[in-house]
Design a protein around this nucleic acid. Structure first.
Lengths: 208, 208, 208, 208
DNA sequence: TGGTAAACGAGACGGTACGTCACGTCTTAAA
DNA sequence: TTTAAGACGTGACGTACCGTCTCGTTTACCA
């Protein structure tokens, strides 16, 4: 799961890379994002905060884009889907968590920026997909399976027809748009209304 | 509706600003976005393409962010909501248009970038909201009113309760997420499924 | 006689280059040579001393080599050949001046360095020749002509046969070697002995 | 004659230093000088050519300056003074040899460079003097003694009065200046004229 | 119709960050 | 203990854009 340069080769002689440096750099990157935001963050500044030479950054990451993706990716892994007893409650729970994550300054400023960069950089897009996007689809999958176990949804293999992907785009897209584009709060009222809308749609689709 | 610096004052003597320059600059900006993408676009390059001095750009826009917002904003005004006979068809129509707009390289690379910048720049966020976001809510409004006229939706003043905003976030968010984050095609099948989900939700909400 | 980039072109629009900057930069270069020596002198340091941006240096000189050549070249123009009444006294006078020039720390550290660089850089060699070397041959020429006027040397057109060049190489070479390679003082005694040797050779050659 | 660090001590346990490495390094240094010239030669490159780790270089030489002095010093030891029957012929012979040595790219690029460095580095100057300069005075000494044995020069102990040093500076200086500064060929004609001048001076001095 | 004042093109300016390079030191495992 | 390998902190490199400034020129309005 090493997100840095995937040096497999040889591992013969030579001083090994400092493991502590990786952690310090990613932490420094998040701190710089909070203080400066994406566009004012510089590699030199991150290096300084991490107590590391600029060359060490470039030895491990190709550039600012890759570094920031790795730095924020770990934050997304904190999302969970606790069992709250019903599909509606489960969805509300994860939406609230996701919204809270997007409110954090490091996520807010970095996420859209790396996505913007990725529209012109296929390897970066792949990195984002692997490190962040695909990784969160687990929540949709788990939610659906739990709902099916409860009998709230029919047992159709929704993933085969792309329904999971659709749900994911709708949830993630709506929350991101509310939080970052409309720039209005993802409060309890909004979450309630959104979840109701989504569940209604799912139920209608299930009947069809 | 002048998006450039709103110079009202004096207006006494002196050479007036070239109107042609504005158009040339915005066109050059879009061309540069297509060729170079957001992060490689430079003010000097735009000036060169437009056959204009760099100072002329800075006389009219505060920076790259503002310039690009103005350059792409006009593209969003091309979206329309032709009457296709049913709410479902209307929504499908506008989603397809919106997806096509997001596939254009200048929009794709610029939209997320300026939104990312706006998370740290309140005036920029306001400019985006005014020039792009709020301007498109007319489509939701028009669609709802037309559906109400048709009797497809109850006559409740949905805007007052924020439902219009919710619908907007869901549609725009889902399409943007599908197109730019998941980076998968917004094809007819996806549009059909998404629209069905949304309409199902709306119907369920209307009954409640 | 502009030693910087030989911009002749157009001289149309645009802010003109600061003339003061040129002087400040060359002065700063000499100061840096005195303090740091050739190998520790950096472009950034010179820029700082001159109160100028690094880019301004690079706009005017291709690099450290060219800059230093220009900075020290002017020092060599201070050499003179006052009429001391005899060829021997004239030569002694110029040798003493030349030795004093080579004792100055900026000259001492820079001269050999740029010559070393020039062995791999033909344009630099040409620049050195034009700015420094050829410029000093005037002293040999003047000395010979004066001696011929005095009747100390026959009136043969020595320059045609390359004798002037030979004399120049012998004088300059011997003094440089004594001062920088042997690193021993070019004192009055040495000058006397060297001049006697040279004059003896010239006299013998004249008789042949 | 070990020019590297004079480690006498301990010599107890541990792996002994590779003797072959020294030779390989010096040879690699000369090769790098030929290909890259002084200013582009790097320690890492030399290490790579020699098949040796960078640390090994630094264990044996303090830096690039010292390494290059040792690498070229040996070339100067190849100079000889074969007996050609007359002082004039002997001088011409050695001048031709010296000029040929200065034409070699490794010598040409390195010699002036280390001399330039030495103006700011007393230990380096001492190393150059010991390894290169003083070592060649043997040629002047031998030439004078041979000429005295032939009766071409009086038997005065010229070395005591510094005449040997003067001759050395004149010969070496003139040839170096011709070859590296004036950058013109040290051809037979020039050698003939220079030697004649020098011998004429010596003869005149001897009569005085 | 001629003066005035702003906008214009050109491009030099002081800066900042870039990403690379070489330095000389260090840390490892192997010899 | 030396070796090869190679990561490390350091600091200069030369470049690219930034946004500002200083020029001489152009162009509309108004007196």
């Amino acid at each position: 799961m090493c997100r840095s340069s995937s040096r497999s080769p040889s591992r013969t002689g030579g001083r090994p890379r400092s493991a502590a440096a990786d952690a310090a750099i990613l932490e420094a990157t998040r701190a710089a994002l909070v203080e400066l935001g994406w566009s004012k963050l510089t590699m030199g500044d991150v290096a300084g905060r991490a107590g590391v030479a600029k060359t060490t950054l470039y030895r491990r990451w190709a550039g600012k884009n890759e570094l920031v993706v790795d730095a924020v990716a770990v934050l997304f892994d904190e999302l969970e889907l606790p069992d709250r007893g019903s599909l509606l409650a489960d969805i509300e729970g994860v939406v609230v968590q996701f919204a809270a994550l997007l409110e954090r300054p490091e996520t807010k400023t970095a996420l859209m920026a790396v996505i913007a960069e990725s529209t012109r950089d296929e390897p970066l897009r792949e990195r984002i997909r692997t490190s962040i996007v695909e990784r969160q689809k687990r929540l949709v999958l788990a939610g659906r399976q739990r709902a099916q176990a409860r009998g709230e949804l029919p047992d159709s293999p929704a993933s085969a027809t792309g329904t999971d992907d659709l749900i994911f785009d709708v949830i993630a897209g709506a929350v991101v748009h509310r939080a970052l584009v409309s720039a209005e709060p993802v409060d309890a009222e909004w979450v309630r209304r959104f979840t109701a809308l989504l569940l209604g749609g799912l139920a209608a689709a299930a009947q069809a």
